[in-house]
Design a protein around this nucleic acid. Structure first.
Lengths: 252, 252
DNA sequence: GCAAAAGTGTTCGGGCTACACCCATGG
DNA sequence: CCATGGGTGTAGCCCGAACACTTTTGC
């Protein structure tokens, strides 16, 4: 019986400005290796599992600042070729600007999800310049005695392993939960950011457009205005803000 | 490197009615063995981890209906005497009425928590007729590079293992989160219940008194009234309600 | 000038809180 | 009758959604 570690690494990519009058588009991204799998790490017995995960991330990207939390431990042998394995997944958020190196077997993929709420179905497209992976994942509510159990499964064929698809699905659900209750949104951004950049993080995670006037009011207590002003497009310049540390006490 | 399973089993106890004019008191309870530890189970390689946990619960209590979810996987060797072990904890909710047997090395303990929000400290008392376990657990916010990491630790001495205390703490946080977003409250109760019973579940988990008039309105869409009427105390009889299955779609 | 985003203010409605009030019961 | 909980109705408040409106920029 072996234990392996897995890394579900999220990032937000700033696309190029296509029009001096338009905003830069942002995309939620995920990291996969050349086999459409998540980066793995060894869990050795002399160290904390979490520290093993952190060491692996630091080694891969020469990065020193990132968000990490345990996502889930997978022990369903139906998903594996190797039935003697248990996999523990860590969710990671990195700001690509902090990366100093990226191994060439790994690549970021834009995530595009079309939710079909009526059918409890998600159409997922993972893509970058070189490759495109498509799959449909379904959430099934199963009565288990008097309780309800939700399971996810891939509908049809796909070039991605079913467990990986489920891990991504679980990770996005976790992001959606965390973004409402913690400050993880800031982990995607530089220390200084514009309100619109922050709003874009909320939008790509929640997968819906927000009204900026209302968003500003909602996050106002969470941020502090700086003196920095960004003036690089054909519209009114914006202030940069930083996270308001005072706000942390709300979660202790 | 071994993997062991752990069960954090919650239940709600109905105390005896002390006065025909007063309500029955409810207490949140937890199950510990004679060494103040959580029941363990083996993770074997032919089965799902979750199924191993379920089998163990069914074997221990001869029960067939309970709520179960994975809580966390603990891999910090500082907590163990045996540093070659990883522990995966499942959170379980059982209704004691469904239990047909209870092994005599296991016992339920009332949980009493006094939150001291200013000091980020919890005073915990676990007690039953035979035994009392006290400890203080502290939540420490540690800056880790630009992110914040929260860790819990026992302050002072206690007859309970630090990891067990942390697991209980994590489990209660999970309950508090789940009770707001899912129907887990109903897992503590019979199929039919009074609104006050349901309110008591919310109160013991959230550890605060609720205004019953407002509670009724809040949970109204979640329940359906039955014809059953309870008439066993010196006040107006109450209707029994059941969970409204229609409400489930909100979470799919 | 114009299109686009930055930023402010106002209105409206739903949900939560507090609280007043009546009902039904056993002793 | 009375203490207690069961149950309903209402008024106030806050927060989020919708939207109108002004400001500032590059071209």
């Amino acid at each position: 019986m072996k234990i392996k570690g897995n890394l579900l690494i999220f990032s937000a990519d700033n696309k190029e400005r296509v029009d001096v009058r338009k905003l830069k588009e942002k995309k939620l991204q995920i990291l996969l290796d050349e086999n459409n799998e998540l980066p793995k790490f060894e869990v050795n017995n002399q160290e904390y599992i979490k520290k093993s995960a952190e060491d692996e991330i630091e080694k891969l990207f020469e990065i020193s600042n990132f968000y990490i939390e345990q996502l889930y431990t997978w022990g369903d042998p139906n998903y594996y070729t190797n039935k003697e394995e248990i996999i523990i997944t860590y969710l990671v958020i990195i700001n690509k600007k902090n990366i100093n190196n990226i191994p060439n077997n790994l690549a970021f993929y834009d995530i595009c999800i079309k939710d079909d709420e009526k059918l409890s179905l998600q159409n997922v497209i993972l893509s970058n310049e070189k490759k495109e992976i498509r799959y449909k994942i379904e959430t099934v509510a199963k009565r288990k005695r008097e309780n309800i159990e939700y399971t996810n499964k891939i509908v049809g064929k796909s070039s991605i392993n079913e467990l990986i698809a489920i891990i991504i699905h679980t990770g996005i659900k976790r992001l959606r939960n965390r973004i409402e209750n913690t400050n993880i949104a800031f982990s995607f951004l530089d220390k200084e950011f514009t309100i619109t950049e922050l709003q874009q993080i909320y939008e790509i995670i929640q997968d819906k457009k927000l009204v900026s006037a209302n968003f500003r009011k909602k996050i106002e207590p969470m941020v502090k205005k700086t003196e920095i002003i960004v003036k690089d497009a054909a519209y009114r310049p914006s202030n940069k803000y930083i996270f308001n540390e005072e706000f942390l006490k709300n979660w202790v």
